[in-house]
Design a protein around this nucleic acid. Structure first.
Lengths: 337, 337
DNA sequence: TCTAATCATGAAATCGATTTCATAATCGAC
DNA sequence: GTCGATTATGAAATCGATTTCATGATTAGA
């Protein structure tokens, strides 16, 4: 037989005090005398009492939950980030909700509605495609201060952003290839309009210029961070008259696709073409050949986003490091020579 | 200036009815006359009213949320599953919480506590390592009916389980290799004690026996579903006097590690050794060589788990297909010959 | 010893929805 | 035209916690 869980009134009765006092023991023990405090604690122990979150949340006018908006949960890139975010919220009593923004019923208004419904207190947004009006709706709902962006962001908005040093990553990649003797360097970009695409592409172009390297426009191949787009890029590259000797990819998945495509067409990596990725996902050390790439510390980024949001929610001390980009690192493996 | 969100009382006032009536329009419109219903709806429209979830949950004694317990969010294998689960809950008003069971503060008691705290109404468990006592605690909390297992399960417990046809997958792999002419087939297992490890290993052994193939014990190599364990297995295999000509891996990640290790040691895949994986994660079509593997329909499994749980939570009609294993499929690519 | 400040506690209001119970109005049947 | 059934609605209780305000008990200070 399942009995109803104990309430604060039950504890009060057992301990011989008022519900008020029990509540105080729970939230501000200093207000209660040593003796009663112990009596209440004993009662809680013996009944296995646990505070009802819905009741507390109603009274406190909060949700005790945060939402993470992920563009595509299916991408391995995000798993480390989610792990970091989870870790960041692990020792708070916040629940972490995760939603895929590509999933069918995700509307533009979903985020604001979650705030309005009192389902969430804050949000970590990993999707830079969120519309301005969706964000405005959040601000109107009084949630403007409780949103942080992670990885991607939206230009022109000043929400806190936790992101890697994308430009530096691109520069590291180009410099590495240059140091290996490469002069003909191509780039497979991310999707059009994406802020990461822009950051990486522009830094790559600037660095290539700085080194006085050739820059035919066909060497900038449009991709979309997917393995398929890398595979497609391989066909384009093989067909070029003036073929690059190295390719910097905007994501590891792109690099894998590219390598698969080039290999299928009889090219050797790195003998014929060197390939550099971006992200350093778990797989990258074990592809064939192992992938040279720019490591993003995804766990750390997730963790930091969590901290910044907690800070905004009034749970932590100000973390002023928020706006500094997270350093990236060049990982040299076998796909470049 | 941010104004307080409208409450049901506000709507009542605007529409000139009682809060009772407003509530009825929200939850059981048939009880209200056409005229008042419209008046209330207008009032809701004009104020932008949204029901406060905490209040509703408190009154209804539920949480409107489910928890997904993932062994390791960092593994790409899980992302498709999570996407499926999300999709399954997308058109309900349940929130989906996701927790990594490997994250530090995840205690054995966490699941039961979440039920007890009224944070969740149900759970999808992807981790077969959950202790019996943890599960007992859930049953004691009256939550026994609201837990479903996905992918992994716990032998001896009779919670609903959504899982692939692991045994069939193993048989398909062995038969495929046999049909290609292989007679010396090795296996890299999952972690000891894992139900999937057992299911796949036993079916593999049985099928190999059935085909009268040799079965030296060193051809069963202990792994743990990780890319590292596949890499380590490569060293063992290369060192064998009686080397197998084909390896069936318990997971794609293992296969990637194995291929990387074998390739590094100068072996050609599939010329020298054929490799079959298990899972068919996104990457598998684009590895070098592209991986022959057993596809698990991960999205579908997640979706089905969601449906079964919703059913148990009284939201859907009984889904009797629950207990049938989800079919698997052999995907032949370039890593076998 | 008396007053003022401090401490410990409880009664009752509150958060915002749902639901039970009661009542008034309308309908249908004979 | 009357009576029971049905329909439409509202007052008030309820879910379980927190908090304000008030009160009695101590303690400290003069």
């Amino acid at each position: 037989m399942i009995q109803k869980p104990a309430t604060i009134q039950d504890i009060a009765r057992v301990a011989g005090v008022s519900p008020t006092t029990v509540s105080r023991v729970l939230t501000n023990p200093a207000l209660v005398s040593e003796r009663t405090r112990q009596a209440v604690r004993d009662a809680i122990q013996s009944t296995g009492y646990r505070v009802n979150q819905a009741a507390r949340n109603l009274r406190l006018q909060r949700a005790n939950a945060v939402l993470v908006l992920v563009p595509n949960l299916g991408k391995p890139f995000y798993s480390g980030i989610l792990a970091g975010i989870s870790e960041g919220f692990a020792d708070t009593d916040f629940s972490v909700l995760i939603t895929d923004t590509e999933t069918n019923p995700f509307q533009d208004s979903t985020l604001a509605e979650n705030f309005l419904d009192g389902r969430i207190d804050g949000a970590v947004v990993l999707d830079g495609r969120l519309s301005a009006s969706a964000l405005e709706a959040c601000t109107a709902a009084g949630a403007g201060e409780r949103i942080v962006f992670l990885c991607e962001w939206i230009t022109g908005q000043d929400f806190p952003v936790i992101t890697s040093d994308n430009a530096e990553g691109a520069r590291l990649a180009i410099r590495h290839l240059h140091a290996l003797g490469h002069r003909k360097i191509a780039h497979v970009t991310g999707p059009d309009g994406n802020v990461l695409t822009t950051a990486r592409r522009e830094a790559m172009l600037a660095e290539r210029d700085r080194l006085d390297l050739p820059a035919p426009s066909e060497w900038i191949i449009r991709g979309d961070f997917s393995v398929e787009s890398g595979y497609a890029a391989a066909a384009r590259i093989v067909a070029m008259d003036n073929r690059p000797t190295a390719v910097f990819c905007s994501a590891d998945m792109v690099a894998f696709g590219l390598i698969a495509g080039l290999t299928e067409r009889g090219l050797q990596i790195p003998e014929d073409i060197s390939v550099v990725g971006f992200d350093d996902i778990e797989m990258s050390g074990y592809s064939v050949p192992a992938l040279t790439t720019i490591r993003q510390d995804r766990q750390r980024m997730g963790l930091r986003a969590a901290k910044v949001l907690l800070d905004r929610l009034g749970q932590k001390d100000r973390d002023d490091a928020a706006e500094t980009p997270v350093p990236v690192e060049l990982i040299v493996r076998a796909s470049t020579a």
